[in-house]
Nucleic acid binder design. Structure first.
Lengths: 200, 200
DNA sequence: ATGTATATATACCATTTCGCATATTATTTG
DNA sequence: CAAATAATATGCGAAATGGTATATATACAT
């Protein structure tokens, strides 16, 4: 409750993390130096250390922030739309806007940078797995609802179907980062929905 | 034609590259130092430089070698099997053996390490895109053959279907690296084929 | 054997990198 | 106003990094 003591922070934690995330997103974990972070965050190294911990801690916090934003996108599309197909279509579109925005298309921060670091930094691997499984669970829930509502017919296996839906996202992420055009990716996403969920 | 002059190489280029690839595969491009390479390849840095060029050149050569091996796997499964579904199933299995072999599952060297480096090293981005598009083309060819032979019915769009087939591979690669079990991934792969290509 | 070609081995260099120890500044509390 | 608190700023230092210059070793050709 006490009003803040001592010298006031010059930075906003959220914005600083966002800036750090931007660098990590483009350069990956080990491709990014503390100096890079310092410049982007507008904080000098000791301040970063005090505020967030070491390089790996900053990276993981930035990952979490990115994930949170993507989850919001999921809520605003898949979960809000009554028709599952249409909600999914909007979700893929929204993801593509993130993946292919700005100058260079960076793809998904998690899928395109975390795997490279995940073998030598096991905490990052845990984060990566958790993100994937969490999304599996959330998609599955919505798939099961769609089945109950008769929106999906004759499903092989709801769990595998959910993973397949996420697989498209993985591919969009990588392909965006590889340089495929947004229009090409949109076409792919739309067609994938048709093939996966049937044409009805 | 002349027999080799000068001091003979102590290393075999193929094996040396394979060793380099192993390190890059686990640690990624920027996570790997020249000293790491030197130790793994059994060559000191100047020799590496003379033989293959700088760090990026070594990485790209290792990528190419890895890609070649995966392409052979594709030939021995998808292309050799008369039934497309069965060939695809065998291909996914073979890929999983690569992705999840050894102590730690490393996933696909291309999909799990190249994206991280692709923004700052544009040649790597080109390699990545080329690998993806090349596989798209090869799958597409086989899909079209299957359609001609009546093995596939009522396809939305052969190109998108091919991309979807590769999407499953991308996801397997990432999920393996994230730590998902081989059996879980096998189950997913099998179910994905059913969903994508129909149950007939 | 001698010179030429090719490879390896040693040592070095400039820079970067991470992390921290030590000031210094700003704000609140007593 | 002084003490306490909490942040920023400066600068140091050991190690790692990418790359190269120089020296040495090993083979073939004549």
């Amino acid at each position: 409750m006490s009003t803040q003591r001592g010298r006031p922070k010059k930075y906003d934690p959220q914005t600083a993390l966002q800036a750090a995330g931007g660098v990590f997103w483009a350069q990956g974990f080990s491709g990014t130096s503390l100096d890079d972070l310092s410049a982007a965050m507008g904080m000098n190294r000791p301040s970063i250390y005090r505020a967030f911990g070491d390089k790996e801690a900053v990276y993981r916090l930035a990952l979490a922030q990115f994930t949170r934003q993507m989850e919001e996108g999921f809520n605003h599309t898949v979960l809000q739309e009554t028709d599952f197909r249409e909600g999914l279509r909007r979700f893929y579109r929204a993801a593509l806007e993130v993946y292919s925005s700005g100058e260079a298309a960076l793809g998904c921060m998690v899928m395109c940078t975390a795997p490279a670091a995940s073998i030598t930094h096991l905490d990052v691997q845990s984060d990566l797995l958790e993100v994937i499984e969490q999304l599996d669970r959330r998609i599955l829930k919505r798939v099961e609802l769609a089945v109950d509502q008769g929106q999906l017919s004759a499903i092989v296996d709801a769990k595998s179907l959910s993973k397949l839906i996420q697989a498209v996202l993985h591919s969009l992420a990588i392909r965006a980062r590889a340089g495929e055009s947004k229009t090409s990716l949109r076409r792919f996403a739309d067609a994938a929905i048709l093939t996966i969920l049937g044409k009805t």
